[in-house]
Design a protein around this nucleic acid. Sequence first.
RNA 1: GGGGCUGUAGUAGAGUCGGUUACAACGCCGGCCUGUCACGCCGGAGGUCGCGGGUUCAAGUCCCGUCAGCCCCGCCA
Length: 600
Amino acid sequence: MSDILGDWKRTHFCGELRKEHIGRQVCLMGWVHRRRDHGGLIFIDLRDRTGIAQLALDPDRDPEAHAKAEAIRNEFVIAAIGTVSPRPQGTVNPKMPTGEVEIEISELRILNIAKTPPFMLDEFTEVAENLRLKYRYLDLRREAIQKNLILRHQVAQTVRSYLTDNGFLEIETPMLTKSTPEGARDYLVPSRVNLGNFYALPQSPQLFKQLLMVSGFDRYFQIVRCFRDEDLRADRQPEFTQIDCELSFVDRDDVMAVMEGMIAKVFKSAINVDVILPIPRLTFAEALDRYGVDNPDLRFEMELVNLTEIVKDSGFKVFAEVAAKGGLVKALNAKGCATFSRKELDGLTDFVAIYGAKGLAWVKIQEDGSWQSPIAKFFTTQELASIGAALDAQPGDLLLFGADKPAVANEALGRLRGHLGNKLGLANPNSYKFAWVTDFPLLEWDGEERRHVAVHHPFTAPLDEDIPLLDTEPGKARAKAYDLVLNGSEIGGGSIRIHNQAVQSRMFNLLGIGEEEAQQKFGFLLDALEYGAPPHGGIAFGLDRVMMILTGAGSIRDVIAFPKTQKATCLMSEAPGVVDEKQLRELGIRLAAPSQQKQS
RNA sequence: GGGGCUGUAGUAGAGUCGGUUACAACGCCGGCCUGUCACGCCGGAGGUCGCGGGUUCAAGUCCCGUCAGCCCCGCCA
């Protein structure tokens, strides 16, 4: 049924043919996107990764090729030789880049037939994602997702050339490495030659890149896969890609300056957006105060306002008690939203409840300036005036209040701010607002484990002026850490590292990692720090998240060729799967009782 | 571990208050058609209503459970 390729050589890609090619004899190869059979004349839209070209088969001109074309169906793989011709007057298709020409086919070869695909591969058909993932190789033929992956390649190329131009060396680090405490759950790989021992897949090449600095490579980068066995989200996959960088003899400003240059170059080359440098900075404390979260969407205002001082002595017990217990009373002004219905307000209350808020007080400012609100009656005229002034309340505005422990009040209102920004269309999808967030706390108290844990990671250096705090109030020490935030998404983060063995040991101590454990888990790093480690620091960007923003993808799966489902399975390969008893025996592994295993 | 949404021909959907043979579109198959481009016209085939149980004279529809996909909380240094 199908023909051999023979000695045919492709001369052009489908999407590149233009008026300039008229008169040329060309040989195209690709997939049949669509066939239009007029009884006599047959048109075939031939597709490859560059686009679509129209093949014209005329029974009068070449009966043999035309007869062959009658059997052709969608997604057949064909090769065609013909002459690039102008389309007749009035039949030019301005919607297609190749719409001014067509190829008058003289010879046709069917290189492979194809079953009818389980779903249409055109740009119009919405397909359930589980089906797309099962037939991923077909889904990947579709233009939208091909464009994403092609852009991803271009971004990777831009990154490589920028970093190379700036003295970075691309060096690979192990995939089979050692499990370390702290951080995410590891993916483990059993060792056959060391029965009972396990490698861990890297959560990031953190320790190795620091050791490369100790080795004197000065600047390192890697576009590298990382693995974290945690639950998935729309922007989180168990294996994901980092643009991982480390630099020697630098402080924070040096890292941020080099890296924002890279980001600017990527955005210019990928989507022709000019990133204004330097990227503005705000401290973690300021971000929380003004936006409630450490990854604010800066495309719109609607900042949070702290009303704790104004309401702490008010007659509204809910607010007064929160203030008395050290909590926060904050509010935001949803401009022009006094028209919200009761149902919409309930929806907002449900939304903040997700983040632990027990309620959401509201005030609608009426056209006559009066306050419609269940809580207005609890405040004095003076208090109302102060609240109104603090929030710049105007007729038609909707004021929304949260009162809780600082963490809950900030997160609930901060997330509400982001939610409203999207709902009200304040977040312009064509706008790109970057910010560095700096001065993160070094440590965070873990109530469950009753110990401090590192906010960034255990190798992050404290601010020089906060080092004395490590002995007195470690929880107040700030870190030389920085995140790059874009449109409400954290796209990168890094820090200056501890390069002094004594400080690193002290850090482990603060984290409740004993000397023996530190030696066992991180001994090689501690040793290395004693052999002349330069001051160094670095950063890692989430390439997948960057690509989501550059492509406008709603899901991380749309920028990854073969992604996993929310349950971390691959619907195409059906990974993970069971393995032979023999394989397990070689690894010295015996499975727990079947009742403890997932049925499959 | 928890909350929510979805599941009906190959695809994406409609299906009212539980009531006749589950509907139209796209795709597919056949026929016709020499300038279409999401071609058009005529005809045809195609269904375990995710799966299991229950209520009922009667279930796509109501109830319970379960599976899968998605979104979220926890988790993700």
